[in-house]
Simulated scan of single mutants.
Amino acid sequence: MTTTVPYTGSEKESLHAALDRHRDVVLWKLEGLDDERIRRPMTGSGTNLLGLVKHLATVEYGWFCSPFGYEVEKLWFDPATEDMAVAPEESTEDILAFYARARAAADRAIAATDLETTGTAWDGRIVSMRWVLIHMLEDVVRHVGHMDIVRELLDGATGAHPDTSGEVRGQG
């Protein structure tokens, strides 16, 4: 089932639900694909679905956890240059587990931090949790759009969110 944004929820609840709605689509875009297609570069820059998941995991830690002093997983790669690149030795299962851990850590940070609380971002800017939620919603939605295009190029499957049956629309 697709997460819905509450019609009368609080600001934090609504922003978090909107983020979750698109985080769920990140995983849905991988459904039904084998490992080769999940890793296949589909643009001139090498964009592939698994690389986008790796990037999104990295930024979950980098925006929700680091600025506010929450624990961040030690990365095995340089996030400045390798967060969208998937090395042959990085398994799909490992990247998906990394995304799940990052998402869970971010959810704990969101739950524990008031919207007005500020922290220091990686580039020295002072940011509030409200700003981070909005920024991450923008970033996830942007990359889900990339995933839409990559998935359609791979097998013709389209759709912004799963239908009520949970199946990918298109040729699948």
Rank of each mutant, 00 (worst) to 15 (best):
D123F: 11
V127H: 03
M84L: 13
E93M: 09
A106E: 04
R125Q: 15
A109H: 05
D78V: 07
A121H: 13
T92F: 05
A112T: 03
L115E: 06
W76V: 10
D83E: 15
T113R: 05
I110V: 15
A100F: 04
A100Q: 11
R103Q: 12
V132L: 01
E73G: 07
A85Y: 13
A105I: 07
D94N: 11
A105W: 07
G124H: 04
R103Y: 01
R103G: 08
E82A: 11
R125P: 04
F77N: 02
A85L: 14
W122H: 13
A80I: 08
A109R: 03
W122R: 15
V127L: 11
T120P: 10
A106R: 07
E116R: 13
S91K: 02
R130H: 14
T113H: 06
P88Y: 00
M129F: 10
T113M: 02
F98S: 02
V132Y: 06
R130I: 05
M129S: 02
E90A: 09
E73C: 06
L75R: 15
A104W: 01
G119D: 06
A112C: 06
A112F: 08
M129T: 05
L115F: 04
Y99M: 10
S91N: 02
D94K: 14
E93R: 12
E73V: 13
R108W: 00
D123Q: 08
D107V: 06
D94F: 07
W131T: 12
W131L: 14
D94G: 07
L96E: 10
D78E: 11
T120E: 10
T92S: 09
S128K: 10
K74P: 12
F77R: 08
A102E: 04
A102H: 03
F77V: 06
D94S: 14
M84I: 14
A109N: 00
L75D: 07
M129Q: 01
E73L: 13
S128F: 09
K74Y: 05
A102T: 01
D123W: 11
F98P: 03
K74L: 11
S91L: 02
A105Q: 05
F77E: 10
R101G: 00
W122C: 00
A109L: 04
D78G: 06
R103A: 10
A102V: 04
P79E: 09
T120A: 05
D114Q: 12
G124S: 06
L96W: 03
F98Y: 13
F98D: 00
E93F: 03
M129Y: 00
F77S: 08
T118V: 10
A111R: 10
A85Q: 15
A102S: 12
